[in-house]
Design a protein around this nucleic acid. Structure first.
Lengths: 330, 330
DNA sequence: ATGAAAGCGCTAACAA
DNA sequence: TTGTTAGCGCTTTCAT
């Protein structure tokens, strides 16, 4: 059983001390080119791989990495969110490790992640807060899209109410009068109104906001949006403005409108939620209540930055206000 | 200067040994519920965060993490690739940390990554192999989309020639006769024919394969594809089959065809490259030469698995054959 | 330019 | 159930 090759082996083989090996491997000064070359040659020959754990343990400037938990990177909402967090991470000198709970139960995943990262941020659906906290074993956790209720958990929630007010106001100014909404319901789960629907209903007046179609979404929510749009147009033919649960669903809605020969936005306005850059390439380009590309990531970065501070204490709760992103469809 | 709180502090405060603290924190057996609770209480009160470096150093089953380097997660090709690698990672018990070289030069990024992961895989464009190898400091590197030429670097290349043969054959069987291609050229860089274009030209006969339009792509290559399609239809009006550099460009091509009232696929077949799941929601759904969703990730996972083996020696070179994904547009 | 000593903070194996 | 003894493999500081 050939034991793992360590810095000690390289030092011995090259006839130098461990520090010299360290200097050579890390491109540090105070070493002659000659010895450096020799050490590098030896280390390559023996297949030496420095232990990142040992080196970070000894080093004073330790690497920082934040873990992101999402449903699936196949959903463009999460991949754009990840892209933004990646920007923030690079700005702050963090690494970003991503996990999706597509294949794995959340709690074990968080427990595993906790052994590899310095903070965990993510969407955790309905997961129990106490259990999350316990699974994280001291690693700070930031809940996205909901407000944490137990002490010790940070959160960045989304203030749909404020976002909707701005959106509906401007839509009205543009002539919107009879609203409809395409709500989403993940197939096979028990239905509960989403915070998006609730905000929609609060921000529109009653008779119009009764025009809600609950779409049974599976993976491909574009299709659900298309079907939902047909249902909505059948049931509430005089609707002039449709707000979809997500941009993906709105894209389906656009398709349904197309197939019926309905002109957008003159006859019907369509608005998504999310603010995906993907929405720029539909025709017409999709107007959206933007979460991604708005201040949410700023907030997350600030919370993480604070939580990563050595003496950090207490939790932070923030709310990000989604902002309408006006393109052509409304 | 309050030093970092360590296991020692908790042990002292709780009046137990370090080992007992370890048992409590990690949910290990052989500890009474009473002491566990007390230790947990203390650790929470003092804000104890176990050092993942120390724990992994001491632990025999160390965490494995692989680093993925991509252009940008905003590009669905990379995010779907990442999603697949995430699946493979979860299957193998790895973590996945992602870096994009959107904001950061590659070499320093690889150097940083190398201190945090056990293997690096990624698209490295034109980057110098020797420099990459040096930056990785002993951490295995897997090049994607090209074949490594220096010893020490692994690679998984894409065999477009084989893929194109299968694609073109079947297209011909379906009536394709005059081919055209929409090639991509990243704006502001020197142009060199892509391996996709070369494979296309090899697999089609000459006069038809001269129908190549080089599109100046920026971020949003959908637009480039749209413009390119118009140019192609103007210049080679009798083209009956168009192959685009990517699915995104093919989506633009679809849009151009739409706006000209050209029916797809009866009058014109359109094929993308990449195999994005996004292609399923265009109308008509996009046929594509699939890279993502085909064996490429298998190959990558195998190479990484081998490279992660303690005594691993030598490098691996593999080729993945893209497979046509027949949907409606062809 | 190089080396020796002293940790970094934890877990594994064994003893009590 | 709990504690003791050894490391894990590297970097830092200080000599030389």
């Amino acid at each position: 059983m050939p034991h793992n090759v360590t810095i000690e082996d390289i030092a011995a083989e090259a006839g130098v001390s461990r520090q010299t090996v360290s200097r050579a491997m890390n491109g540090m000064p105070r070493i002659s080119e000659k010895t450096r070359a020799r050490v590098l040659e030896v280390s390559e020959r023996l297949g030496y791989r420095p232990s990142r754990f040992a080196s970070n343990l000894a080093r004073v400037a330790k690497a920082k990495t934040v873990g992101l938990v999402v449903d699936s990177l196949r959903n463009p909402y999460y991949s754009e969110l990840a892209a933004e967090l990646l920007d923030a991470a690079s700005l702050n000198g963090w690494q970003l490790t991503i996990s999706s709970h597509e294949n794995e139960p959340v709690l074990p995943m968080v427990a595993r992640l906790a052994g590899e990262v310095d903070a965990v941020v993510g969407y955790f659906g309905e997961d129990n807060e106490e259990e999350l906290l316990a699974a994280a074993r001291g690693v700070p956790v930031v809940l996205l899209g909901r407000t944490a209720t137990v002490p010790g958990l940070h959160s960045v929630d989304i203030d749909f109410d404020s976002g909707f007010v701005a959106l509906i106001d401007e839509l009205r100014r543009r002539g919107a009068a009879r609203f409809g909404m395409l709500e989403s319901h993940i197939h096979g789960t028990e239905y509960a109104p989403s915070s998006r629907r609730l905000a929609y209903e609060r921000s529109t007046e009653h008779p119009s906001s009764s025009a809600v179609i609950v779409c049974e979404a599976e993976m491909q929510s574009v299709d659900a949006g298309e079907a939902g749009m047909h249902a909505l147009l059948d049931r509430y033919p005089d609707t002039d403005t449709v707000i979809a649960f997500s941009d993906l669903m709105a894209m389906g809605a656009l398709r349904a409108a197309h197939s019926r020969g309905i002109d957008i936005p003159s006859r019907l306005k369509v608005v998504g939620i999310d603010g995906l850059s993907l929405g720029a390439v539909t025709s017409p380009a999709l107007t959206s209540l933007a979460i991604v590309g708005s201040p949410i990531i700023e907030q997350v970065a600030e919370v993480v930055r604070a939580a990563l501070q050595p003496g950090a204490v207490g939790e932070q709760h923030r709310r990000a206000i989604p902002a309408p992103l006006w393109r052509e469809s409304a």
